[in-house]
Write a protein that binds this DNA or RNA. Structure first.
Length: 168
DNA sequence: CACACGATTGTCT
DNA sequence: GACAATCGTGTGT
């Protein structure tokens, strides 16, 4: 069993030029337009995989990219999948996290609420969350829809110099 | 069928 | 800080 705690995520909306759902539904992003609570997996740069949680109702195309997590359980297995050791880096970045959990496009569409391969569990909310611009985009580069636990050493980037606290 | 490109990462300077 | 790796997907012809 592998377990990790989400410390960083980014939101993507259908009217958002940076979102895969922006151009409309296609074969690749079909899961984004399906029911919420499913896992949307896509391949990035031909090399890595990235995990998203579908958040919108059927037909909308909203999702949250899972960018980084604090490994909690099964660290040796994660390290074996990644071919490295060092707990800080196991799930630091969307590609690394997917690799640590051996997630690829074969798991696209998995039910994260009732599934038995990969799922979400309720957890406590971080005491302080910062909102920042999203990472690695060429469009909508200033939209502050990256959310990161303040001060987490497992996030993919250091905290912003002038942090903007975010409250749900 | 040809082409451009990307929600990344690791390596090298 | 710069750059290559690598390929599925979307678009246009």
């Amino acid at each position: 069993m592998l377990r990790a705690r989400i410390v960083e995520a980014e939101a993507y909306e259908p009217d958002d030029p940076a979102s895969h759902s922006f151009p409309g539904q296609t074969a690749r992003n079909a899961t984004m337009f399906g029911p919420p609570g499913r896992l949307y997996v896509y391949r990035s740069y031909g090399v890595h995989h990235c995990m998203n949680v579908v958040t919108g109702p059927v037909g909308r195309g909203s999702a949250v990219l899972l960018r980084a997590a604090e490994p909690l359980e099964g660290l040796e297995e994660m390290a074996a999948f990644r071919g490295t050791n060092g707990s800080r880096d196991l799930c630091r970045g969307p590609g690394r996290w997917s690799q640590a959990f051996a997630v690829d496009t074969s798991l696209d569409g998995e039910d994260l609420i009732r599934g038995d391969k990969v799922w979400l569990e309720a957890g406590g909310r971080p005491a302080l969350i910062y909102a920042t611009p999203r990472v690695g985009l060429t469009r909508a580069v200033d939209v502050p829809w990256r959310f990161v636990e303040a001060g987490s050493r497992f996030s993919s980037r250091s905290d912003p110099r002038a942090p903007t606290p975010w409250r749900p």
